[in-house]
Nucleic acid binder design. Structure first.
Length: 627
RNA sequence: GGGCCCGUAGCUCAGCAUGGAUAGAGCGCCGGCCUUCUAAGCCGGAGGUCGCGGGUUCGAGUCCCGCCGGGCCCGCCA
């Protein structure tokens, strides 16, 4: 496939010259060609020769390829392979045309492999803030990449409807008698998070006795026959329905909503507990700080052993998050025979059904045994995730199948924190906190972005109907936020700055969207002018034409690497690179008035649209034909 | 104290997985380009001891060790 074909050719030329298994890499600059090998350096080390002389000798021995136009030795000792621009661009354009946006960049790499991606997993007691949005964006993009590379992907959202956070809002409703209806014009999830949860947290902090009641409530929520259980379900379902509206707006889709409470209710936990007991992995603490608790013995773990054993069952008999997560992990991995039942909850925007666990009236949920379970969870949960992985390995489950996709949190820049009325220590970022009400909600940020985008759209299209302005500015807002959050690699803390996220120029989602609008306009004008696309170059290529073709040809390899390394950033960088080269091409190479160049350039524009659509689909930036 | 992550231009970030050829963008700043396919764009300029110190190597921003600075975890929270 495109650039890969060129690599294969370079390999073939080298092996024909007697050099087998030589490493071929992508050069960081086009002046060094489309492929290179530092092989002469290795050879020189072995034989003590001069790398450059060796490179020259090897290069002169190499034959011609079909797509490789020339091979050159370059100081201090590389061998560079240069594509034959004309042949290679025709080949690339034909490939792109043949495969289309769906197929281009895809592969069958993951054929026959099932991957389960768990993301979102927000307590159903609040609206999503931008920290949650990062989780959704990462998980959703990973799922898209896996699907593109031929995997069967199932997306799970673990609905954390047990534990203290859930108990907090129930406490607010049942004991502090806060109204169970949101004020008019306010969404229920926002009301729960912004008002109930924050207020209850404030009161608990002020009144220690409430802490006891909170703990008791958390336990009663686990009892399916209790009134509190019913209330928790009611509230959780209502909030969840609201949260999913946000998730869809962020571009996500789900196959299964798994209620955390069902881990206990379904008997999955009980069965897991017995298994752990049987295998001697857990023990009942008779004395010490953990007296009365069931714990995992971590004494033989290389690092966790220093931090004491992990509690799975509290002294009051209720489970901890880690306990539930171990049971859930076993089920996700297809290593538990406990039947989980569910029913259809609704449909995603793409019309695929969403199932939700339901122990009362559902039918059995069956997932194929996955090759990998990827859990997108913040880095602060590294320890508990490692405990889960460790317990799995002690149960004889291959720990490599259970992957914690960790990411650093989103903090607020001092300027943005000030907008929330917070004092900040000189120049320091501020941690978000749902409990203390310090956060930007995903929807409010999207709304602000949308307002800004709408202003710009109206400037350019004063006669567009409001509906159209709304639709386009929404797409711009979605692209802008998704890009700005995904721009940072997962292991880096995102310092969220509202003004920075609101930019529509430069290194942003809208920059890429804009190039698509420009190319669609060319298509339209070309149609009117009766120009027909031809992938055969009209003569020697202009460097802008070549650079655009070249970046298009690299896309499949970039996608493949992203799927392998789970690094999303390189895909984002590449999408932007294609856009930059398109803009340069756009400035220098007229299509409509391109004369004899017009048919080839039109084919190139088409190829750009196809390739960039493919990339944007993966990143989750909406494609606009006009903006 | 122990463990994990981060430290590259004034700011926000690429590059590190697989060491290699002059360290790249964007924002901001300075200066140009709209009778020509949407200027949400393009071109040019200024701006860098790649946190510090060692080590490995023909070669280190990239690998190893130490230190410094920032974040997170070490809860009968999740």
């Amino acid at each position: 496939m495109t650039i890969k074909r060129l690599f294969e050719e370079a390999e073939r030329l080298l092996s024909e010259a007697g050099l087998k298994g030589v490493k071929i890499s992508s050069p960081r600059s086009p002046e060094f060609g489309e492929a290179y090998t530092p092989y002469p350096f290795e050879e020189a080390r072995r034989s003590g020769g001069n790398p450059l002389e060796l490179a020259e000798k090897i290069a002169s021995r190499l034959g011609r390829g079909e797509l490789i136009g020339r091979v050159e030795a370059a100081p201090p000792g590389y061998i560079n392979f240069y594509a034959d621009w004309k042949k290679f661009s025709e080949y690339t354009l034909r490939e792109v045309m043949r495969l289309g946006a769906r197929g281009y960049g895809g592969s069958s790499e993951g054929e026959g492999k099932v991957i389960l991606v768990e993301h979102t997993s927000v307590n159903p007691n609040k609206a999503l803030h931008i920290g949650h949005a990062r989780n959704v964006y990462l998980g959703d993009t990973l799922a898209r990449i896996f699907a593109k590379t031929g995997h069967r992907v199932y997306v799970l959202n673990y609905v954390d409807d047990s534990g203290a956070q859930m108990a907090s809002v129930i406490l607010g409703f049942l004991e502090l008698k806060m109204p169970m209806e949101a004020p008019t014009g306010v969404r229920f999830d926002e009301y729960c998070g912004d008002q109930v949860y924050v207020e209850v947290s404030r009161r608990v902090e002020a009144d220690r006795s409430l802490e006891e009641r909170l703990r008791a409530l958390a336990k009663r929520i686990e009892d399916r026959s209790s009134e509190e259980f019913r209330y928790a379900r009611l509230v959780a379902d209502k909030v969840l329905a609201n949260q999913l509206l946000t998730c869809w707006r962020l571009g996500a889709r789900y196959d299964l909503l798994f209620r955390e409470s069902d881990v206990v209710v379904s008997g999955l936990w009980a069965k897991t507990f017995n298994l752990l007991l049987e295998k001697g992995i857990i023990y009942l603490a008779r004395e010490g700080a953990n007296r009365g608790c069931w714990c995992v013995d971590l004494s033989s773990h290389p690092t966790l052993s220093k931090e004491g054993d992990e509690i799975l069952v509290k002294s009051d008999g209720s489970t901890t998050y880690v306990a539930r997560d171990i049971a859930f992990a076993l089920w996700k991995l297809g290593e538990s025979d406990v039947k989980i039942t569910g029913k259809v909850w609704g449909r995603n925007l793409d019309n695929t059904p969403i199932t939700i666990t339901d122990t009362e009236s559902g039918s059995p949920i069956t997932l194929p045994k996955p090759h990998m379970v990827l859990t997108v969870v913040g880095s602060e949960q590294r320890r508990p995730q490692e405990v889960v992985r460790y317990v799995l390995s002690r149960l004889g489950v291959d720990g490599g199948r259970y992957v914690h996709y960790s990411y650093e949190r989103v903090s607020l820049s001092p300027e943005s924190a000030r907008r929330l009325g917070l004092e900040t220590a000189e120049g320091k970022a501020v941690q978000m906190s749902g409990r203390r009400g310090i956060y930007f909600k995903a929807d409010e940020v999207l709304d602000e972005l949308k307002r800004l985008a709408a202003e710009e759209v109206r400037k350019r299209h004063p006669y567009w109907p409001g509906e159209r302005v709304d639709e386009v500015s929404e797409a711009i807002a979605r692209g802008a936020l998704r890009y700005s959050i995904l721009k940072s690699e997962a292991e880096k803390t995102v310092i969220f700055d509202l003004r920075e996220a609101m930019r529509l120029e430069g290194d942003t989602g809208p920059y890429i969207q804009y190039t698509m609008a420009r190319s669609y306009r060319i298509l339209e004008k070309a149609r009117d002018a009766g120009i027909e696309a031809k992938p055969t170059p009209y003569g020697d290529l202009a460097s802008e034409e070549w650079m655009l073709t070249r970046s298009i040809s690299f896309l499949p390899q970039v996608i493949e690497t992203s799927a392998k390394t789970l690094r999303l950033r390189q895909l984002i960088t590449h999408s932007r690179e294609m856009a930059v080269h398109f803009n340069e091409f756009y400035e220098k190479c007229p299509v409509i008035d391109g004369g004899e160049a017009a048919p080839f350039r039109l084919a190139l524009v088409q190829a750009y649209i196809t390739a960039q659509s493919s990339a944007m689909e993966l990143i989750g930036i909406p494609v606009l034909q006009e903006m």
